[in-house]
Computed example of a mutant assay.
Amino acid sequence: MKKTTLKTPNGQAITEVFVADTPWLRLRGLLGRRPLSHEQGMLIAPCSSVHTLGMRYALDIVYLNKNNKVLKITRNLKPWRSSACRGATQVLELAAGNSTHKQIKPGDILTWAN
C-alpha cells in the first residue's frame, strides 16, 4: 500500500497517509487493522461514502473533492454506522478527534507534501 503525507492550510501534517486506490484496498479499508495514530490516516479514492461495519473504534471522516477541498467532516463516526457526502471523490479516514486536533475544517484545501 502506498503512503504519502498531507498538509493542512495551517501547517499541520498527517505524515503517514495510506492510499487505498484499488478495489481490494478500498473494500478492506481499515477492517482488521490497528487503530490509527494521530500521525496516520487512510485516503480512499474514489469514494463518497463509508461505513464502519465490523470496526471496533470510531473515526473522523473527511470528505474531499477532486481538488482536495474539504467538503464535509463527520466527527467520531462510531462502529456500525455509515456516512456519505454528495460531490466527494475521496475520503480521508482519521483517528476520532484528529480532524479537530489537526484543525481541519470545511473549505480547507489539503496538499500533498511529497
Rank of each mutant, 00 (worst) to 15 (best):
V17T: 01
T22R: 02
K7D: 15
R28D: 06
A20S: 03
A20D: 07
V19H: 00
L25T: 09
P9F: 00
R34C: 11
R28T: 09
Q12A: 08
N10P: 04
L27Y: 14
L6C: 07
Q12R: 01
L25G: 10
L31G: 13
E16D: 05
F18P: 05
R26M: 10
K7Y: 15
R34D: 06
N10G: 08
I14C: 00
L30T: 01
D21I: 04
G29P: 06
R33H: 10
K7N: 13
F18V: 14
P9Y: 03
I14V: 01
A13C: 13
V17N: 02
V19A: 01
E16G: 05
T22E: 02
W24M: 14
G11P: 03
R26Y: 01
V19D: 01
E16L: 06
P35D: 14
W24G: 12
W24P: 14
T8F: 03
R26C: 05
T15S: 00
L25C: 11
V17M: 03
R28N: 13
P23Q: 09
A13F: 15
T15N: 06
W24V: 14
W24S: 15
R28A: 09
P35S: 13
L27R: 14
G32C: 10
K7C: 13
G32H: 09
P35G: 13
A13V: 15
R28I: 07
P23R: 08
W24A: 13
L30Q: 05
T8R: 04
I14K: 00
R28P: 05
T15R: 03
D21R: 09
G32V: 00
R34V: 14
P35R: 08
R34N: 08
L6T: 03
R28V: 06
I14R: 02
T15C: 07
V19R: 00
E16Q: 09
N10K: 13
T8D: 01
Q12C: 02
F18D: 09
L31I: 11
R34Q: 04
A13I: 12
G11H: 08
F18N: 04
P23M: 04
W24Q: 15
